[in-house]
């Protein structure tokens, strides 16, 4: 059979790369944006599995090859889940901001304490 159109593949690559890049930022809002972009990316990849442009999977309106409904259903579920979780992440970001007056993801204190402990060790 055939491969999916390469345009969509490029779109997926860009979405994933950008999403990952945003995810790796210190600013929480950008992390949230990253999750949103990655959500789109995942949905596009589900679309990709349907290898050709076809008609909507509505039995009444059309005759001819219909697009694959299952990835669509899964993408729909995924969209909604991403939406729910994103709102939570936003609430969390708000909370971080309430506490810290900035929206950066702070490093773990205890980890840094352990890291600091080791320093005299090394110099000795």
């Amino acid at each position: 059979m055939s491969a999916p159109g390469f345009t969509l593949v490029v779109v997926a690559a860009v979405l994933y790369s950008s999403g990952f890049y945003l995810l790796l930022q210190r600013s929480l809002m950008r992390v949230v944006f990253g999750i949103l972009v990655l959500g789109h990316a995942a949905n596009v990849s589900l679309m990709l599995t349907d290898r050709a442009i076809t008609l909507p999977p509505l039995l009444t309106e059309h005759e001819g090859p219909l697009s694959d409904p299952l990835p669509q259903a899964m993408a729909l579920t995924a969209i909604v889940i991403t939406f729910g979780v994103t709102t939570f992440l936003l609430a969390l970001a708000y909370r971080v901001w309430l506490g810290d007056e900035n929206d950066e993801v702070p490093a773990d204190l205890e980890d840094r304490r352990i890291g600091r402990l080791a320093e005299p060790e090394d110099s000795a």
Binding site: A12, Y16, A41
Partner: peptide, 29 residues
């Protein structure tokens, strides 16, 4: 990030192209 994104997209492309069986969605129709 670019490498990771490219990897995923490439994998998608290759895997979908390599599919041999028809998807089960036929059954839904």
């Amino acid at each position: 990030c670019a490498a990771a994104g490219t990897f995923i997209a490439l994998a998608l492309w290759l895997m979908t192209a390599a599919r041999t069986d028809a998807p089960i969605s036929q059954g839904y129709t």
